[in-house]
């Protein structure tokens, strides 16, 4: 498998940072309302259209950030500096999620 112009290390780092930030700042790219299949861009929550779903928007934020970083940051650079520490980013993002959701367990 060749990775000529795509840095998987940069992707994962940017993906995790963007996901954690989007969740912490409650700013999905879009919101989906499954009751009638409505979408809205940004963070404004509509009323009277059923419960909102933000997860798809968080994932989209993170995928875009990851893709941009993976293409823009040279793979050799990312691999050299981050390959040994790349696992810290997803674990830290998971910790952020646990912290932000702690109110549900009280």
């Amino acid at each position: 498998m060749n990775w000529p112009q795509f840095s998987p290390v940069a992707f994962t780092v940017a993906f995790c940072c963007a996901y954690g930030l989007a969740f912490a700042m409650n700013s999905p790219l879009f919101i989906y309302y499954p009751l009638h299949g409505d979408f809205t861009w940004g963070t404004q929550v509509l009323k009277g259209v059923g419960p909102p779903m933000l997860w798809y928007g968080f994932l989209s934020d993170a995928l875009i950030a990851g893709a941009v970083a993976a293409v823009c940051i040279p793979g050799r650079l990312a691999n050299k500096w981050l390959i040994n520490l790349v696992w810290v980013f997803p674990i830290a993002t998971m910790a952020v999620c646990i912290f932000l959701l702690r109110r549900l367990f009280q």
């Binding site: 995790c16 996901y19 993170a62 390959i83 790349v86």
Partner: peptide, 17 residues
């Protein structure tokens, strides 16, 4: 759901490693 999403972000570097 959040862990599953984060796992998606880990897949490229997992495959690369």
């Amino acid at each position: 759901e959040h862990f599953a999403g984060i796992g998606l972000g880990v897949l490229p570097v997992y495959a690369y490693s």
